[in-house]
Design a protein around this nucleic acid. Sequence first.
DNA 1: GTCGAAGATGATGAGTTCGTCAGATCGGCG
DNA 2: CGCCGATCTGACGAACTCATCATCTTCGAC
Lengths: 209, 209
Amino acid sequence: MIRELDRRQHAVRSAGCALDALREIAQRPPDAVVLDLGLPDLDGSEALRMIRGISDVPVIVATARDDEAEIVRLLEAGADDYLVKPFSGDHLGARLDAVLRRARSAPVPQLLFVGGLVVDVSRREAGLDGSPLSLTRREFDLLAYLAARADRVVTRKELLSEVWRQAYGDDQTIDVHLSWLRRKLGESASSPRYLHTVRGVGVMLSAPR
Amino acid sequence: MIRELDRRQHAVRSAGCALDALREIAQRPPDAVVLDLGLPDLDGSEALRMIRGISDVPVIVATARDDEAEIVRLLEAGADDYLVKPFSGDHLGARLDAVLRRARSAPVPQLLFVGGLVVDVSRREAGLDGSPLSLTRREFDLLAYLAARADRVVTRKELLSEVWRQAYGDDQTIDVHLSWLRRKLGESASSPRYLHTVRGVGVMLSAPR
DNA sequence: GTCGAAGATGATGAGTTCGTCAGATCGGCG
DNA sequence: CGCCGATCTGACGAACTCATCATCTTCGAC
């Protein structure tokens, strides 16, 4: 088993009991942990919880079959994957590679700030002055596009092509959605705070002064 | 004007005509371009089009007032911002800063690949074997979540909390959406290609072999 | 094979979303 | 001041989305 991992260029350390492992993880964080259930001193979920308490390191749990409930419990407690014993080193290696690949490509949260506005592009959530905004798909897309170009005038044609993704189309539609967005931002065209009309050119999102 | 930019730590180069500028942009790409309309040799949109032909450099257009139509045309031709003459160095500096800030934080397209599946997280578009999939919000979120964890079993509880964002809730709901997703992926539970049921544990998205 | 639990899927109806229309307003110009 | 085009916004109906219900199928233990 360990030989297979060596072959895959992994340096391997092992610990005989959970407490040794925890100390090791805390002091010299590994890239991943393979947690064999049935340790002498702690039960699996206990050990996992303690690992999660000190580290976000990927954990693969090795378990005996007929343990469905236990597997589910561990996955929900934060395990990254599991293997049913007995398993081959090949198998373990493949799972490790997958887990490490995922760990490396951790999602980068993309946040946009404009004054008191926060737009979380990845979660598709937006907030104003700390309280969440309930936006429809179009409204969110519109706001996100404008927020990404804060302080820059955006034309209706540009919105139509970039947000609506269509070359043809009616500017009126945009006007309506702008109006709806304004309402949710707690403002109106006559007294704008964020969403400013630039007559003859387009609209611009900018922080209130 | 140039003094103001110096003060802001910008190195400034200038060119008297469009062709000089183009040569300069091609040979030593600047961080941003300020394009003054009314050049001796080319009209503004012509010059902008040529710049865009060789570079994605941010361009700020300097224009005379009463030029609404021209401004719109230039923005749509790819200008990043505009300034109406006469303008202060302060103004120009602020716009430059904004444009450069945007250029630095260019959106990173986040694509997930699983076999013939492509999930574009930022655009919320997905495709299978080259043709686009028409997914609802939930379906997309579900697929994106699974694709980000390809080859790993995901429990219903995890989906409920991470995709549906609720702690309570009915597993049945997930089953229904999984079924809908399968249909759009052109498969069924009895002959899965991507979306595999792991009885008693959850589901797993993985490339067909 | 039988049985119970887990999972799959068709149907349904409430709620949401969105493009269009129509009338009201606004801004600039003479 | 009066006009005109640009913009705003309320109303509406068609289409879409989704949780729930009901029924059927599959799986695995015995």
